[in-house]
Write a protein that binds this DNA or RNA. Sequence first.
DNA 1: GCCGATTTGGCAGTGACTGCCACTATGCTG
DNA 2: CAGCATAGTGGCAGTCACTGCCAAATCGGC
Lengths: 204, 204
Amino acid sequence: MVRVTDTTDLRERRRLATRAEIEAAALDLFAERGSERTTVEDIAAAAGVSQRTFFRYFPTKEDAVLGIHRSFHRAIADRIATLPDVFAAVAGTLAAMSAGDGAPIHRLLRVRYLIARDDNLRRVALCLDAEFCRNGQDLITAALGGGTDLRARVMMETVSVALRAALDEWAMRRHAGEDADLTAVFQQACGFQLEMFEKLRGYA
Amino acid sequence: MVRVTDTTDLRERRRLATRAEIEAAALDLFAERGSERTTVEDIAAAAGVSQRTFFRYFPTKEDAVLGIHRSFHRAIADRIATLPDVFAAVAGTLAAMSAGDGAPIHRLLRVRYLIARDDNLRRVALCLDAEFCRNGQDLITAALGGGTDLRARVMMETVSVALRAALDEWAMRRHAGEDADLTAVFQQACGFQLEMFEKLRGYA
DNA sequence: GCCGATTTGGCAGTGACTGCCACTATGCTG
DNA sequence: CAGCATAGTGGCAGTCACTGCCAAATCGGC
């Protein structure tokens, strides 16, 4: 996504270039000293723009690095909209991403690794996940028809747990040198959930 | 929890009274105009203290109303520490609370209803839930022994989903006049999860 | 009634973010 | 190619959350 070239409009190109520059600067600074010890002024200066301009591109400093996160959510939501099986939608997106040219997955890896070690960033990412769940919830209730809103919510948030945990685990393992597969880790996380409910069936 | 009397120390009593006053003021103001449209100055003035003093009692304005939330988490964590079955721990806490004198559950009801309608508050509460999950995760790995940290995380976060959804659903229903039972709603939420994984077993 | 510890308020400062205004650059039009 | 509407940028002032610091008041024990 977000290809800097591929557009004839100079203004548009410039805009995308600036955006990319800010994102890169934020990524570097966050990795270096953490998001809390980095000010918007720092990021803006590193990207060669004013603070005011920074806020025209991103609403918060955390948002500057969470772009892939957002597009990742969008990709999953698109799948959910067509086939309303949340597990399949996530697994499919993960597989498609792993099979792709590698750029998005590398961005995701870097950001997820950052998130895993940065409390502030993790909080913000968690809120984004919650937003994503609300969207997905609406898609599911729209597709499967109304009735219990609670069911759709629980479904979305439950896969979201497995997905989030898998992303963190994957990022940590990859950073440690292992060549972990995202889809595999996700399925492992789902496996733990399944196991929980296998035991639970005793109660209910 | 937080009994205003029951202490001989006058200072301590005063402190608790001030704390309770601030909490009540925040609760009222948040209910009236939402947490974002309420400033710390507003809360402090309503509670009859300075802004500086407010921040000696609570680190953020959102924290002023999330006290029960915290003690609720503590109660669950205590149970997990003794018996490391997360479902049982949550269900047990819920049952004990419902059976109690009613004060904590009414506070919880009010706050949860607030949270369900206030985006900002919901975000903060979600972050508290995440913190709670991290604690619980540590307790589980400590009790059940190490190995996969991922499993403990997934377990905690998965029950947390059911719990959070149940709390919201319960608060909404109760506010609508129905006399919904928290434990029952929680079990319903868990039931939806179980159902998900019953279908999932086809894939795996 | 005095002393040490606690609590409080005020004030200045930082950092996130917004609204406003003037300035510049772009790209379209005659 | 000059001229103009529009988009993009920077600066500035302002609000709000939150912190550190210092002085005044209060409390509890002697």
